[in-house]
Design a protein around this nucleic acid. Structure first.
Lengths: 319, 319
DNA sequence: CGCAATTATTCAACAGCGTTGCTTTAATCT
DNA sequence: AGATTAAAGCAACGCTGTTGAATAATTGCG
């Protein structure tokens, strides 16, 4: 009960609730309960008062509240093909510092840990580290076997990082981190981030939660059949979107992806699609025009999309 | 807290927990708390003691518990194309009575209410009525505009039924009811029921919950593109699974559906697929063989699949 | 200016639910 | 019979939210 209501209040303040009075109204709690909860959160350094706001013509003005940015921090890391990107987030999810270091070809788990260690400091304010990496992986166990990284087989990355850094660590797919980051900037409940690069993957937000599936494998969008008996795919089957998309280019490629995205939106009844990935960023207009039925946009994050989402894996536990 | 733990205990007893002691272990509560919760549930008539079971070589035997079948009932109704099927469920989800009445061609909402009224009695034990019907519909508002029923446009079916019958009513898509029914018989977390009839739809269970999407429209599996530039579909686009599937038959039809289901399983990382619908029931072997990579089975329910699921929409609130 | 009216927040007593510590009950083993 | 073991209940307690009344900070009006 307690932690649930604490999270509810923090979330409401972040999403614009002004004062104890408005929190009570929106959370369905009594003003008294909100008073106690807010007192706890202020004592913990997670909330702060910022003055007063007149809400009605008469009466005592409301004491406005906001999330105390410095109340807690989290690190987010993105283990990409050729570089490691790390951000430090404050409690409102803003990037307070950011670093990129290159990773040598054929880098090993030990290389990643060595690169991480100097970028992450386990001070008191830090809740933990989220690491985003390509799938497949086991989310609950934190064990990764990323595609495209030879030699990485069933690496217990979460445990390795936790021991090396002395911090709680969460490991998730890069696409899941991305959709968390997008959902942080605006309220999303059923949405997807579609990554169009060499591969083709989606991060799914369903019912307000990241959908990972039975074995943390959800998001394999690239191997959806879109052309029966189409070109052979690396996965061994024929006519996967990824394979068909790779054989064409320009407007035709966008048309192929568009058809797949429209199918996805209908299947899951999504209300928002966000595009990202190298191929899309090269010619966004083409892709946006290819799916006129869909409420689609290109990510508003730069290269921080995934690492910020990784940090939110940790920070999100407070909300 | 209270209602949450009450539900947890009821769910655990249903799924095989034997006694207060085992409940405490499985729920992570203290034996004392479980004792109090069980006492409440017995007083409410939802649980009953059924004797004792020796768990260890020595010591007091455990007092075994089970859900009191008669503790509460719920009705489930399925408004099909040409008939209305109603079941009454007891608290363990068993059908205690069942009726079918034909519906005249072009039946109206009033016809359905007239058919329902004599089959549903609002006695004290009855929690409510779940109604399953073809989409599209608005789940939260209980307003339906089912495909294939001319004249049904934005019918506030939930409100109409509630007024007429004097019972709480929930309205949902037939496919969603079906997946609830399947999940009732065995533990499922990420699964789908695939209906293959004139149309093609799925009920999605994701993370243990029915996924309805932003506008209750999720499950539109039939209009997934599987053949770029394929045959024209009733939806106006080309190469939808439904349209391609309709142009072929036998093993080829099964192959088309198989490809679509494999894509679905990969996209959402489902661990179980259940097939239903007229087309599948005509030649189940054909369809099962068409998707060897998938853990797939044919529904073990007969015609009660959907109405039972509809009843579980209501009954499930206790679990 | 001073007091009523209004709105926000807090104080104090209370109630519900799970926990802790200990007791009672019901069985087996020696 | 008495010791041992396991299940379940009793009593007191603590935490969290609720209820009812008080306090604080404004505006409006005589």
């Amino acid at each position: 009960m307690r932690s649930h209501n604490d999270r509810t209040v923090l979330r409401l303040v972040r999403s614009g609730a002004v004062s104890r009075a408005s929190l009570a109204a929106e959370a369905g709690l009594t003003p008294q309960a909100v008073s106690k909860i807010v007192a706890r959160l202020i004592a913990a350094g997670l909330l702060e008062e910022t003055g007063t706001v007149r809400s009605a013509a008469r009466g005592k003005p409301r004491t406005s509240l906001r999330v105390a940015a410095g109340g807690a921090h989290a690190y987010g890391a993105y283990v990409d093909r050729d570089e490691l990107r790390v951000v430090r987030l404050d409690l409102i999810g803003e990037v307070v510092s950011s670093s990129v270091v290159p990773l040598a070809p054929m880098f090993t788990p030990a290389d990643v840990l060595d690169a991480l260690a100097p970028l992450v400091s386990a001070d008191e304010k830090v809740l933990g580290l989220g690491i985003a990496i390509a799938g497949p992986l086991d989310f609950t166990g934190g064990v990764v076997s990323p595609n495209g990284l030879p030699g990485w087989n069933a690496v217990p990355l979460r445990e390795l990082a936790r021991e090396r850094l002395g911090l709680p660590v969460v490991v998730d797919k890069d696409t899941n981190a991305a959709v968390l980051a997008e959902a942080w900037r605006r309220p999303l409940a059923d949405a997807a981030v579609v990554f169009v690069g060499t591969g083709l993957g989606v991060g799914l937000l369903l019912g307000g939660e990241v959908h990972r599936g039975a074995r943390s494998g959800a998001g394999e969008f690239g191997h959806t059949t879109i052309q029966l008996d189409g070109p052979l795919c690396v996965c061994g089957r024929r006519g996967c979107v990824e394979a068909v998309h790779a054989t064409v280019s320009g407007a035709e490629a966008a048309r192929v992806l568009g058809a797949a995205v429209v199918s996805l939106v209908q299947l899951l009844d999504l209300d928002q699609i966000v595009l990202s990935g190298r191929k899309v960023l090269e010619s966004p207009e083409l892709y946006l025009k290819a799916m006129p039925e869909v409420d689609v946009s290109v990510t508003s994050y730069g290269p921080d999309l995934v690492p910020v989402g990784a940090g939110l894996l940790v920070l999100g536990e407070l909300y």
